[in-house]
Design a binder for these strands. Structure first.
Lengths: 230, 230
DNA sequence: CAATCGTCAAGAGCAGTGCTCTCGATTTTT
DNA sequence: AAAAATCGAGAGCACTGCTCTTGACGATTG
């Protein structure tokens, strides 16, 4: 059923794909704000108004790119982590971290789109939430597995009881894990993306050169903090 | 010498200030991408081209706003931290962290300007680097003071020797502090801004409600990791 | 098979943007 | 008082997202 619909539908799907491809290339060179429907149309040899047959607005095109970005990042993390032995929790953590960083460095503008400052005037629709949790799902599973295997330590500081309801929001990601460990994991998660933000957004320029090594060391420190045993 | 120059220079200084004020207000409501020279001019009752007498381009206006933002954030952190007893290193750390977060939450668009994804096509000039280190200077001083006072522990994991040159870049901020502690402090610093990024950019929506408590707990955990005693 | 209906690209046009240039008027300097 | 520097206004250029209309093509049904 996927092979042949009418010729019209096939060319429509093809053109839609071509638009997103060109838009993604433009995004990579110009950034989100520089994404221009007219430029996409120009590159396709179409007139600008024709694009609106395929995407009702610039924001809709952006939304597609955002969802694609979430999926690309999530898939990269999933694939990388899948190569690790299940019991090697620390290796899984470090591998997943590096996968996030590698993808972000390779696709800085797409990363900025999904983890950077929100595009002004653009409100991400609900369609994105399904794709946007793929990466954190992997990270959560690593923590949950490590906890079950007794490969995590309990932090000395208990989580404040007021955070109980918020802790519950993450229990789906990390079942059976106690609150104190959840918040430590969230802190490590924050460190991961904080670092990648800093690196991708240029905050490390003229400050840190050997960024791969530094990143690995920092993620290792957070692994130590969680007591993540090999 | 500052009171009276020519009348022309005084009105010029006043108009320049009025432009930046209006631009800052517009930035707060519309975001960086929505900052429009024509709208500023309109609000001032001027014609758009007249703005260019004061700022040669939109990017130059943005640059002043960025420098102002760095200074405002830096000053907020400095003032908050200055109220703490010098010997209360942990309190100083937590206070400084909260100052960063409070300022960012109160001025989300200005924060996005200085710590978010870079504005497309805009390259921050060298003028900004003087103001942009004020906040991290405070944080570095806290770490350095704590280390001198013996209020920090040395992490079990040594920093990789390849990071020696990069460590040296931070020695000005944290003199006498050994490399392993420097990288732990940098990790904590990353956690701080990673968290604020997540919160300001909406990543915690529908996930964490009691964000002040959660933030304080996370920063406390990083204090624990550094062994930051009372 | 032929007529109709839906889809499509094209073009003109609107309101907005950053930015440049010229032209008088005003103010400062000589 | 004359010369020079500065300034606001206006027109205009190239660009943007987006809308509406027009005419042609393809698919579907009578």
């Amino acid at each position: 059923m996927t092979a042949s619909r009418t010729a019209r539908e096939r060319v429509r799907a093809e053109l839609t794909r071509e638009i997103t491809d060109i838009a993604r290339r433009q995004l990579a060179t110009e950034g989100a704000g520089g994404l221009s429907l007219r430029a996409v149309a120009r590159e396709m040899g179409m007139v600008s108004s024709a694009i609106y047959r395929y995407f009702p607005s610039r924001d809709d095109l952006l939304t597609t790119l955002i969802i694609d970005g979430y999926n690309a990042l999530g898939e990269a993390v999933e694939r990388a982590e899948a190569t690790c032995p299940r019991a090697a929790h620390r290796q899984r953590w470090l591998t997943a971290c590096h996968a996030v960083r590698d993808w972000a460095v390779a696709h800085p503008h797409e990363y900025a789109l999904i983890y950077g400052s929100p595009v002004p005037g653009y409100q991400a629709p609900q369609d994105t939430i399904a794709a946007r949790v793929r990466d954190v799902t992997v990270l959560g599973r690593i923590i949950a597995d490590a906890w079950r295997a007794g490969a995590l330590r309990t932090p000395e500081t208990e989580a404040p009881p007021e955070l109980g309801p918020d802790s519950a929001n993450f229990r789906a990601l990390m079942p059976e894990v106690p609150d104190s460990v959840i918040w430590l994991a969230l802190t490590a998660w924050t460190t991961l993306y904080g670092w990648v933000n800093f690196e991708v957004f240029g905050q490390f320029n003229n400050a840190i050169e050997d960024r791969g090594t530094a990143f690995g060391h920092a993620m290792g420190l957070m692994g130590d903090t969680m007591g993540l045993a090999q």
